[in-house]
């Protein structure tokens, strides 16, 4: 177990802000948003308080995964500028506290999800935490440059949880939404990894730009973008959603591929010259938000 030994005595008693930071609130935002959209898109109704409880459980479970991830990765977090100020590498908290916090929140959120909503949703919530912590963080992140692809699956499970919370099952559309986040993650994070390559290299994390070079990463970004767009259009083609979603998916998909092509054509090696990569990274956030927003609009506004 990693134990912070360099922390001064005063900082050894962690503040509430440090626990909050362990939950990776920014990552949680995306998880909550996609799960919320899945809950609205799923056929059926929930009492608003129970729906709120479901979202809370998904958010807390995502936060717990983040806490367990930070507990395990404190050593590499200390090496990267982006993560060095996190509570564990900064010596603001003992490692054991972060571990206990993560386990307590994971178990609590799964149990409440099961009791308040249903055990199918609770099962997928438990799978999402275990997948993120054991398969992604412990097993694959430091072993394969495809770590981001695996991490994408972990980030996609909340959609399944949100859908199952309403219906108690996981039909085709729920798994297509899972596929969208799964395929969206590699171009999104590799675009970031391209202009943050030096940071990952320093920490020894086998990110694709570090292990296979910038050219190969740009090709992979384009390939995943070409796979992503048809999957986003699939719900409309299969008649699972209406034209509002389909039109949005096609329009945004064209822009996404155009930006991925710009990245593919870029040959820059310095972060300062990687404007297309930064553009794709920023657009990918907007892309996912608009796509899921369109799904909700499609369900709410159209008969």
């Amino acid at each position: 177990m990693r134990q912070s030994t360099a922390s001064p005595p005063v900082t050894a008693f962690a503040e509430w802000r440090d626990y909050f930071a362990l939950l990776k609130p920014r990552v949680m935002t995306l998880v909550v948003f996609t799960a919320f959209c899945a809950m609205i898109a799923a056929p059926g109704t929930l009492h608003p308080f129970i729906a709120f409880t479901g979202i809370l459980c998904i958010a807390v479970a995502a936060g717990a995964s983040g806490a367990l991830n930070q507990w395990y990765e404190a050593d590499i977090d200390a090496l990267m500028k982006r993560t060095a100020k996190r509570p564990l590498p900064a010596g603001k908290m003992a490692a054991g506290e972060a571990l206990a916090f993560g386990i307590a929140l994971s178990v609590g959120s799964v149990a409440i999800m099961g009791v308040a909503l249903n055990w199918v949703a609770a099962f997928w919530l438990a799978v999402s935490v275990l997948f993120y912590v054991l398969v992604y963080t412990v097993w694959l992140k430091r072993r394969t440059p495809q770590n981001i692809v695996i991490g994408g699956a972990a980030g996609a499970f909340p959609v399944i949880c949100g859908w199952a919370a309403v219906t108690g099952d996981t039909p085709l559309l729920a798994w297509i939404l899972f596929g969208i986040i799964f395929l969206w993650t590699p171009p999104h994070f590799w675009a970031l990894a391209l202009f943050m390559e030096a940071d990952y290299s320093k920490a020894g994390v086998p990110m694709l730009p570090v292990t296979h070079g910038l050219r190969h990463t740009r090709i992979q970004i384009l390939l995943y973008s070409l796979l992503l767009v048809p999957v986003t259009i699939a719900p409309a083609v299969l008649g699972l959603t209406g034209w509002a979603y389909g039109g949005t998916a096609v329009t945004l998909g064209i822009i996404f591929i155009a930006l991925a092509i710009k990245v593919w054509r870029n040959t820059a090696t310095l972060a300062a010259d990687m404007a297309p990569e930064k553009q794709l990274f920023k657009f990918s956030l907007l892309y996912l938000a608009c796509l899921f927003g369109a799904l909700v609009a499609d369900r709410l506004l159209l008969p």
Binding site: V10, F13, W16
Partner: peptide, 14 residues
């Protein structure tokens, strides 16, 4: 340091 520690403990208890 004592004052800072007490402040942290109080905020966490709250």
């Amino acid at each position: 340091e004592r004052a800072a520690f007490a402040r942290r403990r109080q905020s966490r208890n709250l």
